[in-house]
Design a binder for these strands. Structure first.
Lengths: 144, 144
DNA sequence: ATCCCTGCAAAGCGTTTGCACGGTA
DNA sequence: TACCGTGCAAACGCTTTGCAGGGAT
């Protein structure tokens, strides 16, 4: 996302483009494959912009989430992580390696089948989902 | 689970059968369809056994989890919930109604397909998963 | 007598909030 | 001047831990 579009999107929400918000977005974009926790995000932003406070990072990710720029992910950890929103392909899952803790993304359209099965059989209108697989990645499985 | 088996299982872990542990198990069994949070569990146990402390409930669920009696569930809430382990049918998911917050269980064997797809394509050895669908249950969908 | 278990209170950790300051329109 | 955004510190909610007392073997 370029600066102009970003500023526009913020304006629609009645918010301003500040150095802090720009810095947080930059780090998120540069680490788009990383699924950063708030703490990790804070550390990375602080390296480039040392005056920033942790509270600002929390407020910023909250704002970005409301704006639909990022999604909050809940793994079984006790903290949340963030990723840039995938607008088009909503159906992706996460694989988490229990050894190295790396997060992998998986495309999988079989989920559509499961969701329609659920809507039919349980009359439950699915709006969202959290699908996470825990196990061992190729590298870690080799070294065990 | 009867008292004798329970005592036996505890003994294997070098633990004793106490009134508190018995009380927590009883509440869990009586509310097996409820997916109680620790706080809810505490309230229910306290009604029957007022001297119990919250820390004991936390320690007890931790113990039960290690014993494989219950599973810890992480929904997008900021607290965890518990259910009695389903030994045989490991593949069940949860539906959470975003309006009434009720939790429903779903049997679904399509997941086996997804897991084998993941193991083949990503060389990722799946050990466990967290599959949760968020949406509206039949009753709530009607009243909207 | 030993050792596990408990209740209580304090600490821990991730997150949110209150507040006063500072910058921008 | 008005207002939003920030940094800091305090508060928060859930969970864990330290500790001293009590019970069972």
């Amino acid at each position: 996302m370029n600066a102009a579009t970003f500023k526009e999107r913020l304006k629609e929400k009645g918010c301003k483009l500040t150095t802090q918000r720009r810095a947080v977005l930059d780090i998120l974009v540069e680490n788009c494959e990383k699924h950063l926790s708030t703490e990790e995000l804070y550390t990375l932003v602080k390296a480039r912009y040392p005056e920033i406070g942790l509270a600002t990072v929390y407020r910023t990710v909250q704002l970005f989430e409301e704006m639909g720029i990022i999604d909050k992910l809940y793994f079984d950890e006790g903290c949340s992580r963030f990723e840039l929103s995938h607008q088009e392909n909503h159906h992706h899952h996460h694989l988490i390696c229990s050894k190295c803790n790396k997060v992998f993304e998986v495309e999988n359209d079989l989920l559509a089948e499961i969701e329609s099965h659920i809507e039919d059989k349980y009359n439950f209108k699915v709006m969202n989902h959290n699908v996470t697989f825990y196990g061992y990645c190729e590298t870690c499985a080799k070294n065990m």
